[in-house]
């Protein structure tokens, strides 16, 4: 099956939903690591939208990436509560450890505001981080 056929199949599987676009985009993002121009075109065709409509939605949300990033991801919370617990001091050492190999992404709130600084790797959460535990996390990613 080609990629376009698979995306059309994903669209068909969500056809019964009211307002199916976001669930479709999540599935495509999870399967291909991005929602790129080709995917947008297929989705627009399947849902009878214009490509501009689909691109407008894709580009609005932070979760959908225009191209796949093969690097491991670490999401570090940098919202106020984690700032109050000193996350900003950890950013420089974490970035140094990450280099170009690991993608260190800022997120705004993981809901672990009483035990920050907090980070997420996939579905695994980490709390009470300090510089050394965060650097270790980056190195093992």
């Amino acid at each position: 099956m080609t990629r376009a056929e698979r995306i059309a199949e994903i669209c068909a599987a969500h056809a019964a939903l009211e307002g199916p676009l976001l669930p479709i985009l999540h599935t495509v993002q999870a399967e291909f690591g991005c929602v790129d121009a080709e995917a947008e075109q297929v989705i627009a065709h399947e849902l009878n939208f214009s490509r501009a409509e689909v691109h407008g939605v894709v580009s609005f949300y932070h979760d959908f990436l225009p191209e796949a990033d093969p690097r491991p991801f670490i999401e570090l919370c940098r919202a106020e509560a984690c700032q109050a617990r000193g996350v900003e001091a950890l950013v420089a050492p974490a970035e140094a450890a990450a280099g170009d190999r690991v993608k260190l992404k800022a997120v705004y709130c993981l809901g672990l505001c009483s035990v920050g600084p907090a980070a997420r790797v996939g579905e695994t959460l980490h709390a009470r981080l300090d510089a050394s535990t965060l650097v270790k996390l980056v190195e093992s990613a």
Partner: peptide, 19 residues
């Protein structure tokens, strides 16, 4: 999908609608 503003009720409704 990672948009803070979608906690606002009307933008939340737009988001459910797929907009």
């Amino acid at each position: 999908a990672g948009a803070y503003v979608c906690g606002e009720e009307t933008s939340l409704l737009n988001s459910i609608e797929g907009k």
